[in-house]
Design a protein around this nucleic acid. Structure first.
Lengths: 197, 197
DNA sequence: GTCTATATGCAGATAGAC
DNA sequence: GTCTATCTGCATATAGAC
């Protein structure tokens, strides 16, 4: 792998582990093994490298999201996504950025984060709308709103896991959300089809 | 106010706004107006000051939590807590700490955070159990699990709000969680009593 | 593209006077 | 308790040779 890619990959990992403010150019050099000259040749500032690394971290999440958008039964996709095994103690590569003041205050760093959340929200809204249309969720739920709720469960789940230093609160939070979705589901237990009268 | 209190209050605000790693002793001195000598007289290290400030931030959240534990109808308390107006863009004073590597790696800083989350979880579990016992939530829901879910909605709601630079996703996430609780509630709408045949 | 040398300023204190 | 002076080391580059 060339120096440029190596730098981006290393910075991406460090952003995930430590955030932007707490990662120094030196950290990147030492972990990547790339020299000072090379580093500043490819990326004139730490910020430039971070922008590239952030894009990489965002791209990293796309496979999982495309599963959520996939062709299967919508409730099955929701369930699979919420129960998908994750290393909860590591937190979210993208959500983490929101807690870094230097990221929040720099449009070049914040904008990709905002877009990533908007995209994820759209994906969630679509699958939830499909679940409602399929009669798997009550027509009263607002897919746009519920999309925020479920994304919050995931993002907040990471916070709980780190606070407790235990991945289980994350898993419980997701499982609890699923429990609610199931409990709220229209009950075809009564009959094969039971629509509004 | 004396220097000591002033330092703690200032550091508490800075921890909330910027986290631990991104707050320097100089930041504290400049905002508080307390001199170098005084500062290091009261707190030999930045870390010592941060521990005191963190305890203060945790204490700050207790009034709200005691409302959740209060004497009213349990569902009303849950609703009030979730819909309580918050400055979502500022994030959670305590949850924010989980995203700071230097906090995660220092037991003196992490332990108070862990305890605060454990306490909040207990409070949530109790009120949810009361709601189940009162027949306001289905007996199938696990209060312990759902407590994690609702805490995650709040913590994650802050993340969404910051990512979008808009408090509405936070509010929507909370409202959506409430929608689900209501949709999942045992329905005395059908009839006075309609249990499993 | 990569290397080594050099530079400015802030972080995070420590020392000792008042 | 508070003040001013001083110190080491790292953050974040810049310069110029190879």
């Amino acid at each position: 792998m060339n120096s440029r890619e190596l730098l981006v990959e290393t910075m991406a990992d460090l952003l995930w582990e430590r955030g932007y403010a707490d990662t120094s150019p030196r950290d990147v050099r030492e972990r990547s093994g790339v020299g000072q000259g090379s580093m500043y040749h490819h990326f004139p500032t730490k910020r430039d490298l971070a922008v590239a690394a952030l894009e990489r971290n965002i791209a990293q999440l796309r496979p999982a999201e495309s599963g959520l958008a996939g062709p299967d039964d919508p409730m099955a996709r929701i369930e699979a996504y919420l129960l998908h095994p994750r290393d909860a103690l590591k937190g979210c590569r993208v959500g983490r950025m929101t807690q870094d003041r230097q990221v929040r205050e720099d449009p070049a760093l914040l904008a990709p984060v905002t877009r990533a959340f908007q995209d994820a929200h759209e994906t969630w809204t679509t699958v939830l709308r499909e679940a409602v249309d399929a009669g798997r969720l009550p027509a009263e739920v607002d897919p746009v709103r519920l999309a925020h709720t479920l994304m919050a469960v995931l993002q907040g789940g990471y916070v709980l896991a780190i606070a407790h230093q235990d991945p289980r609160p994350f898993e419980e939070a997701c499982a609890g959300a699923l429990d609610l979705l199931h409990a709220a589901a229209p009950h075809p237990t009564t009959s094969t089809h039971d629509r509004k009268k």
